[in-house]
Amino acid sequence: MTRTRASAKKAGTSFERMVADYLAEHVDDRIDRRVKAGAKDRGDIAGLRHHGHRLVIECKNAAKTLLGPWAGEAETERGNDDALAGMVVHKRHGKGRPEDQWVTLTMGDLVALLTLSRDHLNN
């Protein structure tokens, strides 16, 4: 069956809900899906923090993996939110449990998470 725009949107919304619910249950119950903000998008998940610093998650449920463009989206959204780091949570096809999905981030964002600073980056 070919994915239509409507079915893709529904799959994306469902995936975002799954990610938000999993994080809310296991990390912080204030985490939830973020309301869409148009041009100044700040990611798909709201309320995620690491040692008091905001984190941005861009969720993707797509048949084709496009890490470069997705990482670019996460970085734009990280900047829009003035967050410490941005990452992409993307569907691992054939795996339905939230804990089995993929998480991708840049080495710079990994170092930011580990050091709680973006000072090492030339932004």
Rank of each mutant, 00 (worst) to 15 (best):
A39Q: 01
D82A: 14
A37L: 05
G86W: 06
G52A: 03
H50K: 03
R17Q: 15
L116I: 02
V27K: 13
S14M: 01
N122H: 04
E75K: 07
I31A: 05
G68V: 06
E99F: 12
V56G: 05
W102P: 00
K91L: 10
D41K: 13
D81F: 12
L23W: 15
N80A: 01
K91W: 00
M1K: 15
W102Q: 01
M87W: 10
T76L: 02
D82W: 10
V56S: 11
Y22Q: 05
M107N: 11
E77H: 04
R97Y: 04
R42C: 05
L55D: 10
K91Q: 11
E75M: 09
H26N: 15
S14T: 05
V89G: 09
T104G: 01
E77Q: 14
L66P: 03
L48A: 11
L105R: 07
W102A: 02
G94S: 02
L113E: 01
G72L: 11
K64W: 01
K95Q: 08
Q101T: 08
L84W: 03
D81A: 15
R33A: 06
F15L: 11
E16F: 05
G86K: 07
A62L: 07
A63M: 11
E99S: 12
V35I: 14
N122E: 13
C59P: 07
H51L: 10
K40P: 00
L55H: 08
L114F: 10
L55Q: 10
G79P: 02
R5D: 11
A20M: 10
G108V: 04
S7Y: 12
T76Y: 04
L110F: 00
H53T: 00
T115D: 08
T13K: 08
R5C: 06
V27C: 09
W70K: 05
D32A: 15
A85P: 02
T4H: 06
N122L: 04
E58T: 04
A112I: 03
L114H: 11
G94H: 06
R118K: 15
N61C: 12
V103S: 07
I57M: 14
Q101E: 06
D29L: 12
A112Q: 00
A112H: 03
A63C: 09
P69E: 14
R3Y: 08
H26S: 14
R54S: 00
N122M: 04
T76G: 05
L55N: 11
A46L: 09
R34A: 09
R34S: 01
V35P: 08
T4M: 08
R78V: 01
L113Y: 03
G43L: 02
A85V: 07
A85T: 02
A74S: 06
R92K: 01
Q101N: 04
E58M: 03
I45L: 09
R30S: 13
A62S: 14
N123W: 13
V19C: 14
E73N: 13
T65K: 08
M87C: 13
E77L: 03
N122F: 05
L105P: 06
A62W: 10
D119R: 05
K9P: 00
A37M: 08
